[in-house]
């Protein structure tokens, strides 16, 4: 099925991944800090929404207290696993500190160099977040019921890497705009706020006010976090899963083409002056 060359190449990529994993393990505490932030915020949002449920009782936009609690517990796992942050090392190390030169001279695309740098962090943080998710489920006596068909599981398995790639490509575009401007911290903060709102961090997207809900379905952020979470909760039918995957593929194609265009133009401007 696979030629020997392809197997060798896959093994090579695996070794590159494992070497990057070693790098992460040389400073694991950094990952815990990020996880605590997600956990704290998620529990804070849950505390607010619990108040709303306890005041109004019953269900809200199809959510029950139990399902919404599971949602916020999963919102700890989803960003840890799927919300990538290549913009930090790209901006700080590569563009500001001048390490981009060294990376450009490697016979390995810059996009994939950064991909392999980021992936271990997501897997490691995803693992820690999953443990936190289990602990919280036990503590709150709120267990998620996985009532998914085999087909749904298969579609979710496709959806998760797409969500990851979507977030990664989007953040890479954001990061390389640093080749034009001296400081993109403002833009980065703005994007983080948009993600918090439209990816479903504060409330599930279908609980957003009308126009914001529609906007959320139009923007790519919900396809990075919200839809994977509700898919795991079993709230999406097979048809809904397929349409979410279609939109993810569409967004990923657009963003990847945009990345290539921006990257090519950025490199023409790249001067590496002062390094």
């Amino acid at each position: 099925m696979f030629s020997q060359t392809r197997i060798n190449n896959l093994m090579r990529l695996l070794r590159i991944f494992l070497l990057h994993f070693q790098y992460l393990l040389s400073h694991p505490s950094r990952s815990f800090v990020f996880i605590y932030t997600y956990t704290f915020l998620s529990l804070l949002y849950l505390a607010f929404i619990r108040g709303v449920f306890l005041q109004n009782g019953g269900d809200l936009g199809g959510w029950t207290l139990s399902s919404v609690s599971s949602y916020y517990f999963l919102i700890i796992v989803a960003p840890a696993l799927l919300m990538t942050h290549p913009e930090h090392p790209v901006l700080r190390d590569d563009i500001e500190n001048g390490e981009l030169s060294g990376r450009l001279l490697k016979p390995f695309s810059y996009y994939w160099q950064r991909f392999f740098h980021e992936l271990p962090y997501r897997l490691f943080q995803g693992l820690i977040a999953t443990i936190i998710f289990i602990v919280l489920s036990v503590l709150f006596n709120n267990y998620i019921e996985f009532r998914l068909s085999v087909l749904q599981v298969m579609l979710i398995v496709i959806m998760l890497p797409l969500a990851y790639m979507l977030s990664f490509t989007f953040k890479m575009i954001l990061a390389i705009t640093g080749l034009w401007t001296t400081d993109i911290r403002g833009a980065r903060e703005l994007v983080e706020i948009l993600i918090i709102i439209f990816a479903g961090f504060i409330v599930p997207v279908n609980l957003l006010p009308g126009i914001l809900e529609n906007l959320a379905y139009f923007l790519p952020f919900a396809y990075m976090i919200y839809f994977p979470v509700v898919a795991v909760q079993g709230q999406l039918s097979v048809n809904a899963l397929m349409s979410v995957i279609s939109v993810q593929i569409l967004w990923l194609s657009i963003l990847y083409l945009l990345f290539r265009k921006v990257w090519k133009k950025g490199l023409m401007r790249f001067t590496d002056l002062g390094h």
């Binding site: 590159i16 070693q22 390490e99 030169s101």
Partner: peptide
């Protein structure tokens, strides 16, 4: 300029370059 991984022994950076090249 530094292309070696700061927190790992140089040997690991050599191995990475071996795979990349």
């Amino acid at each position: 300029k530094n292309q070696l991984w700061w927190d790992l022994p140089a040997m690991d950076s050599f191995l990475l370059n071996k795979e990349i090249y």
